[in-house]
């Protein structure tokens, strides 16, 4: 999968939708709920189970990163599965929102 900035993906096993904000430094697999994510325009509906190891959920508006590869992903729709890159759980980026300025 080509994880370009701005590319959109969806979970294969839950309702989560994702946007790649920063690409990984090396090729790898973005996963949600334990399964590889699908391109946003993939016609298939979510099926199968969310892996118990990756069931913390994706929240809308939150950013998720993998420190090793530098990949950063935005939660564009919420879902039950949680994100991983090459099997390593991604962590939520705790950025303090800034006040609106324009």
């Amino acid at each position: 999968m080509e994880l370009k900035p701005g590319s959109r993906w969806k979970s294969a096993v839950c309702d989560a939708q994702l946007v790649v904000v920063r690409p990984p430094s090396a090729a790898g697999e973005l996963q949600c709920g334990g399964a590889p994510v699908l391109p946003i325009d993939d016609a298939s509906a979510p099926s199968g189970d969310v892996s118990a190891d990756f069931a913390a959920g994706v929240m809308i508006g939150k950013r998720y990163t993998d420190a090793a590869s530098g990949i950063e992903v935005l939660g564009a729709k919420a879902g039950k599965g949680s994100l991983a890159f090459n099997g390593v759980a991604m962590t939520i980026k705790g950025a303090k929102p800034l006040p609106a300025s324009d």
Binding site: P5, G6, R8, Q17, V19, V21, I60, L74, A76, K77
Partner: peptide
């Protein structure tokens, strides 16, 4: 990344 994406994901969500 392109500006229409900002509207796209908001409209989808």
């Amino acid at each position: 990344m392109r500006t229409p994406l900002l509207l796209d994901i908001a409209a989808d969500a």
